[in-house]
């Protein structure tokens, strides 16, 4: 499913003293099959944007109404917002949001806090039951099989964990269960908001590893929101930089981190590899890598070899 957003704006608590403009004329296209990264400061609008993708935040209909009116003389109307996910037009009021949400899985920040059921299996099956067609309840075998697949996909042994209470698990395991609860419906697009936040370095690496596996087997398109630049540099095919409700840039990480100084100017971190490239540059050593650790090491070693 291709995701197309054009001229998207959103204001929280519009028309009150609490009004906060979260998105301001955002245009962005995410191709099918991408591992897409979204980076930006706290409050830059990235979470607001991703919540649009499965209709949790609706495109304000007032904008459409505004468009229907005839413009007064000399008045320039803002361009109409466009938001399409696959065949779903999210600016329409009548869009089938339930169907949309089945195709666009969303893993929120700290998803382990959404667990509620008595057993891991019941929690994972929650989405599956909800999305089942009315009157066609999935059979127990079908449910169990899907839950098993989802749990195994996130690296948890079905026999060991299915009947456990989700509240007895460790933080990392809870997060895996929560992710399993989202991917169990096999969404085509998987959106994750800070999937590795609050985990230790090993846990982070494992989650990213997991997302890669999911990307190649379960979900065609993966969109992650992250603060962690190393994560982005290692994994993403393209990155969008959000700042103050705008999309500043979107391009492959290789090109993005080439202008590392600019990112630092925006108050964003840069990956360790980019820092090293900068430090080496200051000493007169130019390394042209794509900012993944592997490539950086290879190019650096080759450079050393070439000079020795």
């Amino acid at each position: 499913m291709r995701i197309v957003a054009e001229h998207l704006s959103y204001t929280y608590n519009a028309g009150s003293p609490f009004a906060v403009k979260a998105l301001d004329d955002v245009s962005l296209t995410i191709e099918e099959g991408e591992f897409f990264g979204i980076i930006g400061h706290t409050g830059s609008g990235k979470s607001t944007f991703v919540q649009h993708l499965n209709g949790l935040i609706r495109v304000p209909s007032s904008l459409k109404r505004h468009r229907a009116k005839k413009p007064k003389k000399g008045e320039v109307l803002p361009p109409a917002p466009v938001l399409r996910v696959g065949d779903f037009d999210l600016t329409e009021k009548k869009t089938d949001f339930r169907a949309l949400r089945r195709h666009v899985g969303m893993v929120f920040q700290y998803p382990e806090y959404q667990l509620f059921a008595e057993t891991v299996a019941a929690d994972v099956a929650f989405g599956l039951k909800n999305f089942a067609e009315k009157g066609q309840k999935p059979g127990k075998e079908a449910l169990d099989a899907a839950v098993r697949d989802a749990l195994e996909a996130v690296g948890l042994d079905y026999r060991e964990y299915a009947e456990k209470s989700p509240f007895d698990l460790s933080g990392g395991q809870k997060r895996r269960v929560a992710i399993a609860g989202v991917i169990v419906t096999k969404p085509e697009v998987l959106v994750l908001d800070e999937p590795a936040a609050g985990l230790d370095p090993l846990g982070k690496r494992e989650i990213m590893q997991l997302l890669h596996e999911l990307h190649s087997t379960w979900c065609k398109t993966v969109v992650i929101v992250s603060h962690d630049m190393d994560e982005i540099a290692e994994n993403c095919s393209r990155v969008a930089v959000f700042s103050g409700g705008h999309v500043r840039d979107y391009m492959p990480p290789k090109e993005l981190f080439r202008n590392a100084e600019e990112l630092v100017g925006l108050g964003l971190d840069i990956p360790l590899t980019a820092k090293l490239v900068l430090a080496l540059k200051r000493r007169g050593i130019e390394i042209d890598c794509d900012y993944t650790t592997e490539d950086f090491i290879r190019k650096t070693l080759a450079f050393k070899g070439g000079n020795a």
């Binding site: 949790l56 806090y113 989405g127 909800n130 999305f131 989202v182």
Partner: peptide
């Protein structure tokens, strides 16, 4: 929002169904 994303429906059904639909919110 997290439960809605997993297809939870809080707006339709009879009273009993709606009350039951709130369990996945209340416990977390």
């Amino acid at each position: 929002n997290a439960q809605k994303a997993r297809g939870a429906d809080f707006e339709s059904g009879n009273l009993f169904k709606r009350v039951k639909a709130f369990v996945p919110i209340l416990i977390p």
